Computed example of a mutant assay.
Amino acid sequence: MNKQQYNKDNPTLVDSIVCAIDILGFSQMIVQSCQEGYGDKLLREVNYLINKNKQCIIPNKYSQGKIKIFTDNMVVAYPIKGDGEAELDEILENVAEYQFNLSLEGLFVRGGISVGDFYINEDIVFGPALLDAHYTESQIACYPRILLDKKTVERLRGYIGNTDTIAQKNKILIDTDGQWFINYLNTIFKYYKDCTNEYEFERIKLALLERHKCKIEEMLLTYKENIRVWDKYVWTANYHNCFCDLYFPKEKSLKISRKLLLSWPRQISTQDI
């Protein structure tokens, strides 16, 4: 029996890299769309976006990776071969692209990645790696970020220590709370890597960041009276600005204005009376 793939005829736990992903605010979107009479429209749009963008996670028919989608949740798993470096690298890159693509459509996600025993088929997802990934997503991530749990961080530390490649390091950022999360905006450097015109490549990267900026600004304005949700997009805006500072420091217009990120009290005015 091959312990490097998920055997549908003889279910067996397989050492795997597992990612659990949740779309931020999706339950509220469902309720609101049905109350206001556009539930079918939302269903069709989300179905189209998820099915279009999930292709980047399992890129070809030869991959042993598997996906399970239910409502606003997705589980992605890659069985580990050897030391697991290739599988972790693949899931980081592919999930980042999925997260980035959805963000450009105004769908922001949070998630967790873990490593350990896992099994998946058409009917079931099972194993401690799934529980750890789900716990990281639901209890620790909080913001629209996909976190690596402690076991995954330790593995990645070892891989980076052995190879010391800049490409691997750039796929991850470390947050102020010490959590390691996927630097999904790094996808812009991959998007048009085959572009031979350097000027066109630069223009495309800036256009993608501008589109990402506009979506975040839209969310900040939409949720300005819901402080709990608004705060999640403040985090996303700060991440966006941090990325711009790191890679495009001269492009000041790409950054989200601090005025949108601050919530100051004000005095009573005539409009309030």
Rank of each mutant, 00 (worst) to 15 (best):
K190L: 12
P144E: 02
T152A: 06
T236P: 04
T163R: 13
F181D: 03
C242M: 15
K61C: 11
I124A: 14
K68A: 13
T163D: 13
I166L: 12
I268D: 05
K61T: 13
K232C: 02
N121H: 07
C244F: 04
T136N: 08
I166K: 12
I273H: 12
Y6T: 03
D175C: 07
E198A: 07
R266W: 09
K232V: 03
Y199L: 09
Y239I: 03
K215H: 11
L209F: 03
R155T: 03
P11Q: 05
R155Y: 08
F248V: 08
Q35T: 12
Q179G: 09
K68H: 14
D164T: 15
K205S: 06
F243I: 05
I120K: 01
Y159D: 02
D272R: 06
H240Y: 02
S253K: 13
N47S: 14
D272G: 04
D245W: 10
N60T: 13
L24C: 06
F100N: 01
Y247L: 12
K150N: 14
T222I: 14
R44K: 13
N47P: 05
K52W: 03
G161V: 07
I120W: 00
S103Y: 02
R211D: 09
Y233E: 01
A133C: 05
K3C: 11
V115A: 04
L156T: 03
V75I: 09
Y38T: 10
G161N: 09
V115Q: 05
Q64S: 15
L104K: 09
N7T: 07
C19H: 01
E45L: 09
E87V: 03
Q55H: 05
Q28N: 15
I166W: 09
L221K: 15
D177F: 10
K215A: 12
Q28T: 15
K151F: 10
D132P: 02
W264H: 11
R211P: 08
K259V: 13
C34G: 15
I227S: 12
K215E: 14
E90W: 05
Y98K: 01
S257R: 05
Q4Y: 12
T152W: 01
E45A: 10
L148T: 01
E122Y: 11
Y6K: 09
D123M: 11
L260Y: 04
S33N: 06
I146P: 01
Q32G: 11
G25C: 04
K232P: 00
L208Q: 12
N170Y: 07
G25M: 01
D164E: 15
L262N: 10
S63M: 06
Q99W: 07
V76A: 13
I146Q: 01
D89T: 12
Q271I: 14
I120S: 02
G161Y: 04
P144F: 02
E198R: 08
D272I: 05
V125P: 03
F201Q: 02
E105F: 10
A237D: 01
I23M: 00
D72Q: 08
D164F: 15
E93N: 12
D272Y: 05
Y135I: 07
S33E: 06
N47A: 13
D245I: 11
R266F: 08
V31K: 06
I21E: 00
V115M: 06
Q55Y: 02
E36T: 14
T222H: 14
I268V: 11
K54V: 04
E137D: 08
F248W: 06
G39W: 01
I17N: 01
L206N: 07
S114A: 11
Q35M: 14
P59V: 00
